[in-house]
Nucleic acid binder design. Structure first.
Lengths: 178, 178
DNA sequence: GTCTGAAAGTTGACCGTTCAATAACCTACC
DNA sequence: GGTAGGTTATTGAACGGTCAACTTTCAGAC
């Protein structure tokens, strides 16, 4: 009765390309793999939801907005081109436009024309934005520790870093957002 | 210039409760921790987005809907109470209501009154839903393999499972959704 | 029985994201 | 120097999710 778990066929599958080939035999997930995937997807959902809620309640900033502020804070003039900003947080350009528009209304970022490219727009972290980032980061980092870092083995956390380096590598097929 | 990275104070922090105490000294993330967290959050975003897109394009089902179908498929009469369903996928009750309503319109689930509890509603996977699940699961599992499982070390994947078991444990503070 | 408090589920308004279309601009070729 | 094709960013409609209010039902006290 379990579609996802069962491993009906373990047939060779020798040399079949990948997930694109509709004639390929599907290699189902092993029980351990399946467990990992399932707790992963629900765990991530709960974790993000919680971090987002904590930031919103205590600093009136979403997790996505916080991420954007962090990127801006690290850039040369605290400013980053919209497209680069979108790519660096793995959001679509459109989403980034909307988010930055809200942040601008809120006074935590400003938008200025890009000097070197007439099409370009640079998002800049304002002083108010900087203040907000500084205080929000306390909440954020404590949350990340309390709900993730401190509840697991440091070695496992490093493994998590390796996993997502690899995922990032494999998933950087340019042209898949927006 | 980097708020999130710097570790301005490594002061004892002996015995301070947690992320709730506003007077506590914030222990910033180590570079390796910060790197792990950053690639993690963007990697997960990209990964979920991609799996969701593949399911939508090829089977007209979202990742969230697929998760719900999987849970239903494994239950005794392919039916689960709404609240339990919501908890098992870490979504709010409200979200589950809306999602199931759409799925019902689509003919892949049905809603029936719960015999043992007059307040209760059971979501049931229809035959059409079962068919849809079976074919969608091929796409899903291949995607999970291609974009996650097969790109990283098996041992690291197990570590990921352990991490999110712990996260789930720590994060199951009942009453934090809806 | 009925009253009180809690839980299950739904609803509709609001907010954030996606999607497709569009305008503005850059590059390069001729 | 004009035009073709690609890139950047934005826009508004449609969609999905959250939030707070609400209805119905259950369980226990009395």
């Amino acid at each position: 009765m379990n579609v996802e778990t069962t491993a009906p066929a373990d047939s060779a599958d020798a040399g079949t390309p990948a997930h694109l080939d509709p004639t390929a035999v599907t290699r189902w997930l092993e029980p351990a793999e399946q467990h990992a995937w399932r707790t992963f997807i629900t765990g991530v959902t709960a974790l993000f939801e919680r971090l987002d809620r904590e930031l919103r309640e205590q600093h009136d900033v979403s997790l996505a907005e916080h991420e954007i502020m962090v990127r801006l804070s690290e850039a040369p003039r605290r400013s980053v081109r919209m497209a680069e900003l979108a790519a660096s947080v793995s959001h679509s350009r459109s989403r980034t436009t909307h988010t930055v528009a809200r942040m601008e209304r809120d006074g935590i970022v400003a938008r200025v024309a890009c000097p070197s490219d007439g099409r370009g727009v640079m998002a800049v972290l304002t002083d108010a934005g900087w203040e907000r980032l500084v205080s929000a980061s306390h909440t954020h980092v404590r949350g990340v520790r309390a709900h993730l870092v401190d509840v697991c083995d440091p070695a496992d956390l490093l493994a998590l870093g390796r996993v997502f380096d690899a995922v990032h590598e494999a998933n950087t097929v340019p042209g898949h957002l927006d």
